[in-house]
């Protein structure tokens, strides 16, 4: 199935969890990030129990310099 990570299409196995996707992107252990699925924040503790479905939009943000 295809999901969209920060607007980029990514192929992911059916029934994958959010944690599996983030692990594959080497982001699962990264500090200072936040993840949302279809504009709803998913706290880190729930990544492993959040199943993905096709065409979901996943937003991953991190802190950067700003005023």
């Amino acid at each position: 199935m295809t999901v969209f990570v920060n607007q980029q299409p990514i192929e992911e196995a059916d029934a994958a969890t959010l944690l599996q996707l983030l692990t594959r992107l080497s982001l699962s252990d990264k500090k200072g990030i936040a993840v949302a699925v279809d504009a709803a924040v998913v706290p880190r503790a729930f990544w492993g129990t959040t199943p993905l479905t096709a065409n979901q939009k996943i937003t991953i943000l991190q802190a950067t310099q700003g005023g």
Binding site: N6, L27, K30, Q62, A63, Q65
Partner: peptide
């Protein structure tokens, strides 16, 4: 600090 889409090259970690 600001937020941006996660990017491998961003020095955000170093900043924090």
């Amino acid at each position: 600090v600001a937020l941006k889409r996660v990017h491998a090259d961003d020095p955000g970690d170093e900043m924090l």
